[in-house]
Amino acid sequence: MKQLNLSVVISSFLLGLSIVISSLIISNSGDRELNKDKINEKEYKPLMTIQETAEYLKITESQVKTIISSEDTMLRTSGLSGKLFPVIRIGTDNYISTEDLKDWLKDSTALRKQY
């Protein structure tokens, strides 16, 4: 009988140990996901400057300015189909909406716009 009790104790200990270890592994992986979201929140900006937009699109600042001025001209003269470049003017500064830029990019690509 003593050997049966010893094997039950050892089995119970190993089972408890495996539960504790698996709990630690699961909690650490959850923490990594939360930290990743926090990092993305810090990096996310609802508005970008012309320079940041150029870096995001991997083009030059002058190309971004050309897009803005071209769309302004087309809008005033002949009307423009599709989404407009998401520029917001605050005083003399231009800012670009991060979320709307993604939509504009998809729409401009689909319409094969040229600037």
Rank of each mutant, 00 (worst) to 15 (best):
T66F: 06
E99V: 15
K2P: 05
R76N: 12
Q51A: 13
L111D: 01
P46L: 05
E33C: 11
D31R: 11
V20P: 03
T53I: 07
D103I: 15
L34P: 05
S69H: 04
Y115I: 15
S29A: 07
V87M: 04
A54G: 05
K36T: 11
L15C: 12
D103T: 14
M1W: 08
P86Q: 01
L6H: 08
R32T: 13
K42P: 02
S97W: 04
L80N: 02
T109M: 01
T49I: 08
E33R: 07
T53Q: 04
I25F: 14
I96C: 10
L75V: 13
L75K: 14
T98K: 03
N94F: 14
L75H: 09
I10P: 00
D100R: 06
S11D: 00
L101V: 12
E61Q: 14
V87K: 02
L101Y: 06
T53P: 09
Y95W: 06
V20R: 00
W104Y: 15
Q51E: 10
I25V: 15
K106M: 12
I67D: 01
L24M: 02
K65T: 13
K106F: 10
Y44M: 02
V8N: 00
L101R: 04
S27P: 00
E99T: 15
Y44D: 00
I96P: 09
D31G: 08
W104R: 05
S7Q: 06
F13T: 12
F85W: 03
S12V: 11
I59R: 03
A110H: 09
K83A: 11
E99P: 10
S23V: 11
L47T: 12
G16N: 02
K2V: 14
L15S: 09
I96D: 00
Q51F: 08
D31K: 12
L34C: 02
L14F: 15
E55G: 10
N35F: 13
S12G: 13
D107W: 04
